[in-house]
Design a protein around this nucleic acid. Sequence first.
DNA 1: GAAAGTTGTGCAAACGTTTGCACTGCGAAC
DNA 2: GTTCGCAGTGCAAACGTTTGCACAACTTTC
Lengths: 343, 343
Amino acid sequence: MTHRPSIKDIARVAGVSPSTVSRALAGSPRISEQTRQRIQTIAQELNYTPSLAARTLVTGASPMLGVIAPSLADPYVAAVMQGVEAASHDRGFQRLVASSQGDPEQEVAMMQLLVGHDVAGLIIISSRIPPEHGAGLPRFDIPVVFINAFHPGEGIYHVMTDNEHGGWLATTHLLERGHTRVAYLGGPQQGRSHTARLAGYRRALEEAGYAYQPSWVVPGDGTPQAGRKALRWWLRQPESQRPTAFFCYNDLSALGLLSEAYQQGVAIPEDLSVVGFDNAPLAEISIPPLTTVEQKARELGRQAVASLLAALASKPVTDVILRGELIPRATVAAPRVSVIRDQ
Amino acid sequence: MTHRPSIKDIARVAGVSPSTVSRALAGSPRISEQTRQRIQTIAQELNYTPSLAARTLVTGASPMLGVIAPSLADPYVAAVMQGVEAASHDRGFQRLVASSQGDPEQEVAMMQLLVGHDVAGLIIISSRIPPEHGAGLPRFDIPVVFINAFHPGEGIYHVMTDNEHGGWLATTHLLERGHTRVAYLGGPQQGRSHTARLAGYRRALEEAGYAYQPSWVVPGDGTPQAGRKALRWWLRQPESQRPTAFFCYNDLSALGLLSEAYQQGVAIPEDLSVVGFDNAPLAEISIPPLTTVEQKARELGRQAVASLLAALASKPVTDVILRGELIPRATVAAPRVSVIRDQ
DNA sequence: GAAAGTTGTGCAAACGTTTGCACTGCGAAC
DNA sequence: GTTCGCAGTGCAAACGTTTGCACAACTTTC
C-alpha cells in the first residue's frame, strides 16, 4: 500500500473495468445503482483520491484559477484574496496562489508556473511589472485579469479602483475643512495606484485654486515606517510652512504616522489632520479612528473572478473601475487658527 | 494556435523526436550542444510551457507543497505564510494554498483536493478539526505537518508555539507589576491555542498564590470586536471588583480593546493594563504601543517546511515547540493605589 | 420466433510527459 | 576487414484518467 490507490485498484477489487469505476464515480446514468453503490464504498475504504493531474490531462480543462500577489502579508491583498476566494469557491473553482515578493521577474516566473499547472485563467494583484514592459509580457492563450495594474492586450482584462477619484476625494475633504496646506505621503514609486492617487490629489488642489507643490509630496512605500519618517519630516519643517494635513497613500502608512505623532507628542487631529486610503479593518480600531477613502478590496477580487469566468465563457468583458467613498472618522479637524490667519 | 504548444510541436518544427526535445530541455548530456541550442530557441519562440500535470503523472513526484489555513486575512496566518514561502522557495518547492474559512469539513475537503493535485506534503495552519476527530482524519501516504494544532499519527508532525508558556509569561508579567486581579480575554473556544494560553494564565495565577476565577475569563474569538465587548463587560463590573489588567488571546482583540477604551475614556495603562499575544506588526504601531508575547510566526512556517522536507527525505523528524518572549511596551503599568489598598 | 430496443459494461485511444532500451553511423583498435 | 565502443537519436511504454464506440444479455414488439 505504498502508492496512492488508483481507479484501477478499485476496479480490481470490485471486479469491473476501470471505465466502469470512472463512470460510477462520476455519476453516469449508464451505471446501475447497485454497482455504483458497491464501487463507492470500495473507493471510500481504499481512501481513494482522484489524480487531478491525470484528469486535467485528458479533459484539457481544469477548475483552477491562478492568483499572483506581491505579498500575502499585506492586509489589502488579504482583503482582495477574500473576495477572490468567496467568488471562485461559489463557482466551483480552486485557486493556486503564488506570491512574487514584489519582484517582476519572479512574477513572470510564477505566471509560467501557474500556466504549467493548467490553470483556466490568471488573476494578478498589483502587478509590479512596469507598464513599458508591456509587449514583453509572455502571451498565453488563457484569460488574464489584472487588479489595479494595467497591461492592455488581447485576452487581458482589468479591474481597478478609481485611484484618481479617491485621491481627489481625500484631498477635497481636507480642503473643505479649511486646510490650505495639504501634503501627500506617497506609495511605491513605480505603482500605478500611487501615481493615480497623486494625480487626484493634484487635481483637487488645482481645482480649489491652490498651487501644486512638489516639495509637499513626501516619498514613501506604503509601510508604517514610511509614515513615521513622514511625521519626522513634518516636524523638521519651519512651523509657518508646515502642512496642516496629510493625505497618505494607504492606511498602513497613515497608521505609522499616527503612532509616531503619538510618541512625539503631536496631537491628531488638533495639530495635524490625516486621511488614509483602503479602509482597512485596522482603520476602524486605530486611535483615533482613521478617516480614510474606502477601497472595495473584496469587491475587486469578486469582480476579477467574475470577469475571468465571463472571458472563459467567451462572453464580452469590459474593464471595471470601482469607486470607493470617503469614510469620515476622527483624524480630520479644521486647521489651527494660526494657519487660517496665514491666508 | 488555439492550443498550448506541446513538446510534440517543438519536435515537429525541429525535425526531431519528442524524446529528444524532452532530453534537450532537461539538459541531458546525451544530446549534442548544437541540437540543444536549436531546440531551446524553438521552445522560446513557440512560448512553450511544460505541462506539469503530465510531468507529475509520469515522474510520480511533484515539487509542490499544499498549505491550508482557516483564513488568509489573519495577520498571524500571513506571517506564518511568509515563513513557509521563504523556506519552500529556497528549496525549490511551489505552494498550493487553500483556505478553509474555518470550517472543519472544508478543511478535510481541501486536504483531499491538494492530495489530488499530487502535492508532496501538507502544511496545515491552525487546524479547526476537533482533536477527538483524530482517527477520522483521512490518512494519506504523504507527510503532514500541523502548525499549532495536534493530531498525532504516523507520518504526522507538529510545529507549535509554546502557548502555555506564553500565557504564563504574560500573566506573570502583570502579577509582577503588582496586579492581583488579572482577567483573560479568550480566543476561539475549540482552539488548542486558546486552552493552552488559558492554562498558562491559570498556572501563573496559582503559582503566585491567587485563586483562579472562572468569572474572569471572558469569552472571545480573537477579533477586534471581541476586544470591544470585553471592555464594555469590564465597565459593567462593580468598581471594587474590576480586574486591573487584561491578558488577551491575541493582538487583534487587544487592539480592539484599546480602541474601545479610548472611545469610552478609559486610560490605558493608567486605568487598565493590557497584554496581547502574537507581536503582530500592528502591535508596534498601536497607541500606546502594545505589550505582548511574541509568537515566532515566520519561524513556525519555516520550521514546518523544514520538518516536511526532512520527512520526505525519510530523515527522523521530531515535533518542534517554539517559545516566544515577552515584549514590554507601553500598555502595562502598576495598578492604581485603590486596588492595592484592596488587599 | 426474429428483429429491434434497452441496459449495463468493457476496450482502447488519447492527453503530454519521461525514460529504458534499441538502433544507426562513425572512428578506432586489432 | 572484422570487431568494438561511443555519441546521438528514436521507439514505445508508462503514468491515471475520460470517453466514443462496441458488445452482451435481456426485454419488448410485431
